[in-house]
Amino acid sequence: MGITIRNISKSYKNVKALQDISFNVKKGELFGLIGPDGAGKTTLFRVLTTLLFADQGSATVAEFDVVKDYKSIRNNVGYMPGRFSLYQDLTIEENLEFFATIFGTTIEENYDLIKDIYIQIEPFKNRRAGKLSGGMKQKLALCCALIHKPKVLFLDEPTTGVDPVSRKEFWEMLKRLQLKGITILVSTPYMDEAALCDRIALIQNGKILEIDTPKEIVKHYPKQIYNVKANNMYRLINSLKAYEHNHSVYPFGEYVHYTDSRTDFNTEDLKTYLETKNLSNIYIDKTVATIEDTFMELAK
């Protein structure tokens, strides 16, 4: 088993950061923790990386207990905190060398593990980490977290503040690392990244809403979703929200995702209604639920 979490709760002064969380991550799995800011993702990471004590519950990482065997965990996991936490005044190479040394290894020894990633930042290896772009910083941080060949990798929002191209590359790298047998727990606020995980847990306000594969999770969506478009987006949203039969209305790109509360919903009825609201070029069509829709529905 990669990670087991049993009834973990954790409160700060008057905030319940985690409430009775339980789930397992299989060995070699790429597991995503999906949720908005303040959902408790970072707190969970800190409990699992032995940085915080949970108030209740127990957890193991790579078969080690997070309280009793914290030293073994610290030898066997790679951790990449949400905030860029490398030495800004050290160069890429010096940072990597430092982390290799403190874990008792060398860059050469585990070079094959980081090669794909490191090769991209190697041309800048004499540049100080503080002067790197967001994407390069993340790649370096990943290299540093990987250099000691960890059994489990914890990545707390690794792609926040990173451009879309680098984000895509980053996820491709995670997929490759997974092939090397590393268990990966990754958190992200981006719903589109969730689809790239083996399984995901949707988390909000310290509670797990749902755990499943990305494909299954969208099947849980109870209603038919419609893409709605018209000449005036703002008025369209307001009109839909004012419509008496609406179940949910969320803007989604150039469309509005609309669900109706009736079972015998007819799109013509809605179209007529919208036309009375002075909207034209009205387009209504069926679409499939995304993880974001599922999340919104569950978080309601």
Partner: peptide, 13 residues
């Protein structure tokens, strides 16, 4: 302050 302590703690040092 820079958060590097977090990484140092999660290391065998």
């Amino acid at each position: 302050e820079l958060g590097t302590m977090e990484i140092l703690l999660v290391s065998p040092l």
